[in-house]
């Protein structure tokens, strides 16, 4: 993991919507985009656009925090906490 990877991770974490997506995927792994959007609406009473959620998921994927698998022909998203642990070991731990 290099500085660019760390940048992607901390950028991905630097947004409340993306942190919430991480929280929800931890509680309930394996969600379609529709499911992520539905959970957001159910919890917050406000609908984020599908495009907005897609962009957030793209950033989480780029950081390696969200993995995509296929269930039939549906994209299913799950959390991969591996890069978070690496980021802790590589940098954050020095300051804890």
């Amino acid at each position: 993991m290099n500085d660019d990877d760390l940048d992607h991770i901390f950028k991905a974490l630097g947004d409340p919507t993306r942190r919430k997506i991480i929280d929800r995927l931890r509680e309930r792994p394996g969600q379609s985009l529709f499911e992520i959007c539905a959970l957001f609406f159910a919890e917050n009473g406000m609908a984020l656009s599908r495009q907005a959620i897609t962009q957030h998921i793209d950033m989480l994927q780029k950081a390696g925090l969200v993995r995509v698998e296929w269930s039939g022909r549906t994209r299913i998203h799950s959390l991969d906490p591996g890069p978070l642990r690496e980021a802790v070991d590589l940098w954050l731990r020095h300051h804890l």
């Binding site: 529709f34 499911e35 539905a38 959970l39």
Partner: peptide, 18 residues
Amino acid sequence: SFTQKPMDAGPVRMVVLD
């Protein structure tokens, strides 16, 4: 086969199937 298992969303509980 289901892409979404039973889930609460506000006033409804839902699933999504193929």
